[in-house]
């Protein structure tokens, strides 16, 4: 069956009603995830511990590198801690809210159960993107706050309100980009079925975002700026907090990010039109 044809559009009763409707849906999806997570309390504790351990693992290479040098590629230790802080925060968003849902889509495509999602009278991309949230990644959020506080107390100068504003705005942009890349990955699963390990590839590439973009040279710099833009994900937000991001770079990043999101949405719709359901 061509599912796109069966996708029922919500009645168009104005944008306000639409937003209200999807806000309600989001609340329902969120509470479902919470209930599921609360069921496995022992798991909850183990996962929290793992989150703390991974934070330590993230910090070790940074500590080792800055143990031998005062500055690396123009970044001091506390300054690159700000990058690590953004990295930890974004990883919490990625692993807590983005990856679990979209991993489930790949499963759906493989088993053919995506049919049930497509039959529901709401936007399929919205439904699959909000299907699963893992609340224990809040530990990472607190960890990143601790890292920020430590870093700025080391620098001895706190970010101004304007810097904080641009920082938060660039976090929003970073989340949009992360999500768009993920949507592209998931769309690939409609063409090549066995891509569940693409999520591992994604995660492993994302790991590089703990470093400021300036440490990379040559081909890696190009890849990490334009193809898998860790520069926009963590370096620019960190520069924004430090008050070092100039307006032109910020505008270019914003335009690039929004274009990326639009392309991802188009690719997803194309992919969905191709979906012919697995023979299960």
């Amino acid at each position: 069956m061509t599912a796109a044809a069966n996708e029922v559009r919500p009645r168009r009763t104005g944008p306000a009603a639409l937003v209200r409707r999807y806000a309600g849906l989001f609340r329902v999806q969120l509470s479902m995830s919470m209930l599921t997570a609360m069921q496995y309390r022992a798991d909850f504790v183990v996962k929290g511990l793992i989150a703390v351990l991974w934070m330590a693992v993230t910090l070790v290479p940074v500590l080792v590198v800055f143990g031998v040098r005062k500055t690396v590629a123009g970044w001091t230790f506390p300054e690159s801690l700000v990058v690590v802080g953004w990295f930890t925060l974004l990883r919490a968003v990625l692993e807590g809210a983005v990856s679990p849902s979209l991993t489930a889509v790949v499963e759906h495509v493989r088993h053919g159960t995506l049919d049930f999602v497509l039959l529901k009278p709401a936007d399929a991309q919205f439904l699959v993107s909000t299907a699963k949230i893992e609340p224990w990644h809040l530990v990472d959020v607190f960890g990143s706050l601790a890292i920020f506080i430590y870093a700025f107390s080391k620098i001895g100068r706190w970010p101004s309100l304007l810097n904080l504003g641009t920082g938060v705005a660039s976090l929003g942009l970073a989340i949009i980009i992360l999500y768009s890349i993920w949507i592209l990955v998931v769309s690939a699963s409609f063409w090549v079925i066995k891509v569940d390990n693409l999520s591992y590839l994604f995660g492993s590439l994302f790991d590089a975002a703990r470093w400021p973009i300036t440490v990379f040279r040559g081909a890696l710099r190009v890849v990490f700026t334009f193809v898998f833009p860790i520069a926009i994900l963590t370096t620019y937000p960190a520069m924004a907090l430090l008050g070092r991001l100039d307006g032109k770079t910020a505008a270019a990043a914003l335009a690039g990010g929004l274009a990326f999101a639009a392309i991802a949405r188009r690719v997803w719709r194309r992919a969905l039109a191709l979906y012919t359901s697995a023979s299960s």
């Binding site: 290479p61 590198v65 492993s204 590439l205 440490v215």
Partner: peptide, 14 residues
Amino acid sequence: TTNMPLVMLAIWHA
């Protein structure tokens, strides 16, 4: 997915 050694290599090069 085993790209971490290359990333670390880039960092130590810097």
